[in-house]
């Protein structure tokens, strides 16, 4: 059993060593499917109707549901961020569920595996680099929109509230947000990946029927819940910084 993140290729650009990891390749693979899906859905209704039907009806339902979700969480700022958080939700959701699907075989662990062009993917969100980059987006959005809505002076003043002596606490508290966001997503998905990896190495009679329930919990339930919680907290932090 190997739960490490494999490096598929090391490239050198202007003397800088860049690692092309399994998570990067898997995320490109998943992103290409999301883009393809978006294009196909767009092509499915070239002429949008006033009274929707078929694919347009389903897409409008999801867009409206997400719009009301962002509005109820972020208040008046909701409509502005609806499309961004919708995209982020789909992105994280597909990453979390990717362990259930076949992807490119990057690093084969056994001779038999080497013959296969495809294998089950390691979810990119089980890599701290991916989750931290997503959390850092939230962090910079929180600070950026905080500065934009309050102004630099009031933003700096906010760090010294309620009294000046508490400034270090406020700074450490703000820095803890992206770390906690990234660790939560990373830990949950990596935990699920490890448990499923261990379970699949049990003798054959232990694998009858039970993995379906375990995949249902660790991949589907935890995957959907964690992607939902991630964007919910991200929305709460961003809207809180602007108020």
């Amino acid at each position: 059993m190997d739960f490490n993140i494999h490096v598929a290729k090391v490239i050198h650009i202007f003397g800088i060593e860049i690692w092309i990891t399994e998570s990067m390749i898997n995320s490109w693979f998943i992103c290409s499917f999301i883009i393809l899906g978006a294009v196909l859905i767009r092509l499915a209704f070239r002429n949008p109707q006033k009274v929707p039907s078929g694919v347009q009806n389903v897409v409008e339902f999801f867009v409206e549901a997400f719009g009301s979700f962002t509005s109820s969480t972020m208040g008046k700022y909701g409509p502005k961020f609806s499309s961004f958080y919708g995209a982020m939700f789909i992105y994280i959701l597909f990453f979390n569920l990717s362990g259930l699907f076949l992807g490119p075989n990057i690093v084969a662990s056994t001779p038999l595996d080497k013959q296969l062009p495809f294998t089950f993917m390691r979810p990119p969100t089980a890599d701290i680099a991916v989750t931290l980059s997503l959390a850092l987006m939230t962090f910079f959005m929180t600070q950026g929109y905080g500065i934009k809505s309050k102004g630099v002076k009031n933003w700096l003043k906010g760090l010294t509230e309620p009294i000046f002596l508490l400034t270090p606490l406020n700074i450490i508290g703000e820095l803890a947000n992206p770390i906690s966001l990234s660790f939560r997503l990373f830990g949950n998905i990596l935990g699920g990946t490890i448990i499923m990896g261990l379970y699949w190495n049990l003798p054959w009679f232990a694998l009858l029927g039970i993995p379906v329930a375990l995949h249902g919990y660790f991949d589907v339930f935890a995957g959907v819940l964690q992607s939902f919680i991630f964007i919910m907290l991200s929305m709460t932090f961003v809207s809180g910084a602007m108020e």
Binding site: S68, F69, N177, S180, I229, M232
Partner: peptide, 22 residues
Amino acid sequence: FDYSVLKNLSLISQVGFLMAIP
């Protein structure tokens, strides 16, 4: 649908992380 329940659940589940990490 009342999303405030889900929002509060998310915030509660974040308490442990926000206390442990600092």
